[in-house]
Computed example of a mutant assay.
Amino acid sequence: MEFNHTSVLLRETVDSVVTNPKGIYVDCTLGGAGHAHAVGEMLDPEGMIIGLDQDEDALSVARQRLSDLNCQVLTIPTNFSNLKEALQNAGIYEVDGFIFDLGVSSYQLDTPERGFSYMNDGPLDMRMDKDAPLTAEEIVNEYDAEQLLQIIRNYGEERWAKRIVEFIVNARQENRITTTGELVRIIKQAIPAKARQDGPHPAKRTFQAIRIEVNRELAIL
């Protein structure tokens, strides 16, 4: 499994967080383990790096990447909203530092079958936790127009939110929307051609908004 991800502000983050080579540090969004591995390299054998992630694909790769460290390593399959309980269950009651690298990972975006990307066709999924009950397909097809409008407007800050919702509602009356490619086409139809000429991909803000809703990102934070 390929899991490529460039860690944001890697050295700046790690150098600021690690103050005790024998300490315990928690990467609350483990992902590809870029930050966690850099932390672990600075720790003595008595030190420990703990990684949390709800994405089992990420955890599988991270465990392999962290296997060459000399410090203690613990990975926990959970969302960081369960941080306190997860650490207590592991017998950890004090730590020396935390790292949070929020958002979607390069791996998730680059894997079409995860449904995060507006650049590649795939199922409308967008779940970071693949066992979570709510998918992007359910939101797009089953939320009412007002719910969709609030999500796209508030989480995506999309100026064309109302038109996008109108086009989604009309399209799903004909056929259920099941793929990212279908949703991208609908969004492109909703946004006037002139408005699509400049700026980011026309589906970027809407996809961001739906992803945030699927994963309850702001509520969890």
Rank of each mutant, 00 (worst) to 15 (best):
A86H: 05
E2H: 14
G91F: 06
L221K: 14
V140C: 12
K84C: 11
E137S: 14
D68I: 10
I168P: 01
N70L: 10
G34P: 08
M128S: 02
K22S: 15
V169T: 15
N175Y: 08
K194F: 06
R127I: 05
D44E: 13
I191C: 08
N154E: 15
T135C: 13
Q108M: 09
P202A: 01
A136E: 05
Q197I: 10
P21K: 15
Q54C: 12
Q108S: 05
Y93A: 12
R127N: 10
Q64L: 12
R114N: 00
T29Y: 10
A62Y: 02
L149Y: 15
M128Q: 04
G156R: 01
R153I: 04
G156S: 02
Q88I: 05
P45I: 09
F116S: 12
Y143W: 10
L218N: 10
T6H: 15
A62G: 03
L83I: 04
K162G: 04
G115T: 14
I177A: 03
P123L: 04
C71L: 06
I177N: 06
M48E: 15
R159N: 12
R159L: 03
Q54W: 14
R11N: 15
I187T: 04
N79W: 07
N70F: 11
L43R: 05
A161R: 00
E2S: 14
D68C: 12
E85C: 04
G51D: 13
E182G: 06
E146H: 08
M128N: 02
P200V: 05
G97M: 13
V73D: 06
A132I: 08
L52C: 05
L59K: 13
C71Q: 03
V18M: 05
L83S: 09
E94D: 14
L10K: 06
Q197H: 12
T178L: 08
V73S: 08
V95K: 09
Y155C: 03
M119S: 14
M126C: 10
E2A: 10
E2C: 12
K204T: 13
P200M: 06
D68H: 14
